[in-house]
Design a protein around this nucleic acid. Sequence first.
DNA 1: GAAGTCACG
DNA 2: ACGTACGTGACTTCT
Length: 885
Amino acid sequence: MSKNKKLLLIDGNSVSFRAFFAMHNVLDKFVNGEGVHTNALYAFNNMLEIILKEEQPTHALVAFDAGKVTFRTKMYDDYKNGRSKTPTEFTEQMPLIQDLLNYRGMKTYQLPDYEADDIIGTMSRKAQAQGMDVTIVTGDRDLTQLTTDKVTVRVNVKGVTETESYTPEHVKEKLGITPEQIIDMKGLMGDTSDNYPGVEKVGEKTAIKLIDQYGSVEGIYEHVDEMKKSKLKEHLINDKDKAFLSKKLATIDVDAPVDLKLNDLEYRGDNQEQLIQFYQKMNFNSFLERMNVPLENTAETLADIKVEQLNSDSIENIVKSNKAHTLVIEGFGENYHTAPITGILISDGKNYYGTSDVSILENDDLKRWLADKTKEKYLFDNKRTIALLHRYGCNLNGVSFDMLLVAYLLDTNDNKQDIGLVAKNYNVSLPTEEEFYGKGVKKAVPEDNSILINFIAQKAQVIDTLKDKMLSELKDNDQDSLYDEIELPLSIVLAEMEIKGIKVEVSKLKEMENTFATRLSEIEQKIYQEAGKEFNINSPKQLGVVLFEDLKLPVIKKTKTGYSTSVDVLEKLKDKSPVVEKILEYRQISKIQSTYVVGLQKFVHPDNKIHTIYLQTLTQTGRLSSIEPNLQNIPIRIDEGKQIRKAFVPQHDDWEIFSADYSQVELRVLAHISGDENMQEAFKEDYDIHAHTAMRIFGLNSTDEVTPNMRRQAKATNFGIVYGISDYGLSQNIGISRKQAATFIESYFEQYPGVKKYMDDIVKYARENGYVETIMHRRRYLPDIHSSNFNVRNFAQRTAMNTPIQGSAADIIKVAMINMQKMIQRENLQANLLLQVHDEMIFEAPKSEIETLGELVPSVMDSAVKLDVPLKVETAHGKTWYEAK
DNA sequence: GAAGTCACG
DNA sequence: ACGTACGTGACTTCT
């Protein structure tokens, strides 16, 4: 017996729309030869590949909406009104999607006056009546009302390649109602995106409760008089007409005049020849590869690169050439401060010279060429390359193209330090580091040397191939000066900081290790006594049992896996049992001990210094991050932890540590970009900003009346604003009620109306453009701003508010770092910039230079950029990092 | 490798 | 009605 027939129905409009936003961040990378965008087309096809493989349909249909006017708009004028207009980058792709479906052998259909839903509903019932199985694919959850034993609805989640399958059981499980009752639910709650009302104050939860009790909208109104007097009852009665209208609007027509026969929908697969031509026109290399079509310009040719030996003869050619060269210095191992160089490759785009004999780096001509800033070079990861070469006694200058930096600026999600991954985004195939070297225990350099050299030659070719395209994208985004004047010069500054390193007194750490060890075992014994047994205090699981089962303390918060034992919980239990305080103390000390006192020692090199690695291309906002070890989170807030800073010292006796930090930089940035006059005035007059805020939001006449508690609350509110405020978040942070927090926020926005306007405008900007920007045009794409999920969307909105603030502050200090390094050279100082911690710079310098730095550093920092408010800088110095604060 | 916790701005 | 602050990295436990 042959397998059962299966009909695949796709909601063309909703899936295309989701496909568009799923790949919105790569919009400009997906353009065909005629300048038409292809991102939605590409994502749609990806989805098709997966669905066709999984479903193996015998019949298929893709339904589209016919136009703006439908029987629903005739019923209700405002149906789907007020939607923001569809971007032209999207509409221009719709004909292409139709073409694609045609070549893939799938029937498409639309019907005047009806929406795609109705076509799908009607055909699903026809197919079901003939005993066929049906799968519906859509981005619209409302279609789950069509679910039956024979009909499965797959709704796109997170982009289009993943779906959630709805069967009647799954609907029941998720919502607690039957598929048929979904229209009752929609009738009661309405739909904001389709713009119909429902009953006031009734959302999903209330709607489901009512349906559970009365079965349907009709059932509810039969019994509405019996209901207890309540606001809900009033709303139900007032909005009765709306409920019935909305139910009608939500109902998919399963009997639309569709003139299609099931036989017309038989699916016979791709029209290979036309599809290949189409893919070629769209530059869809990855799909071509999957069809085993040889490509003109990628993998096959890359593998065939002829590499000549890099030796003194070839170096002669390189040195006398005036062409730009691509440079690959391959290191093996994660941390490039210790990793050996395993291969070197230089190419002028035509000839490839490579070797794994590192002694070539002793060649003076090569050394001179590398250091010559008039010899232009392209590479991937400037900072890493400088650091690797430095350990082999070579300097590097003249780099104009760093593919890693450019990729990150174009899209902060391209932040993996892996050229293979970046290449993939441009449809160029190159193995990733993991694919080439393997992972885990299998990770190794290939025994056959020529394989390695060939790999790094491929890297060089990819850099060369993509350079012009990436640089022109950069220009289109107006990001060329961010790259030329900030990120590229910064990569050199950071390399110098990492290479210089900061000196650490290991003896000091050893001393602390002993003290803390004794103290820890003392606390440990006391905790065991109180608990009445020995257990692993570091295990949240075991600790949870002791606190909440043995000692029966009240459970404040739960995690996915059990009881929460985090600080805020323990703080609330402090007065319930003396053991809680000891546990807090134990946690604090043991954190300091393991992460810092013991942890840092592992990173001290033979030169008695720690050489961190700054990740310049990781964060979504433009900040740096620091790893192996992280020197941006050395304790300061509590004194026991702050002691760690006594181990950080200058590299010479008679030198000091000097630190300089921006005061309130993020709020100043906010005052600048929001243009809020009241906040700008506060900074121009150099008021205490938190006290000033307190005075305003508490309606006082002068800052003299501000109590410390008011100032604390105002400070928290200022932070909250920067983070993209929510009343709940603020209430949790300062321990007030949610209502009070809401009042704070409300009066905050009254006092700083410009800030309110900024928050509204930036979210709107993100919705319209798909990204937000800093003052230096650093971009962050926010595809989630269009999410139908409330939480996901809200998170994206807060991010839209926060990123320009945090990111612009990051821009500012980056400029200051570059200018500072120039200043040190110009003034011929011995001082070294060692660390950056987001809003501060830490230097070491001879004592004799401290006074000069005290003048120079603040002036360089506060003039880094010109804002509408002044920047303020505070400095300190001392024998150790501890004292320089 | 995920989850929980906690260090920093 | 929904469930929260923004951005990071490292250590420990446990599956």
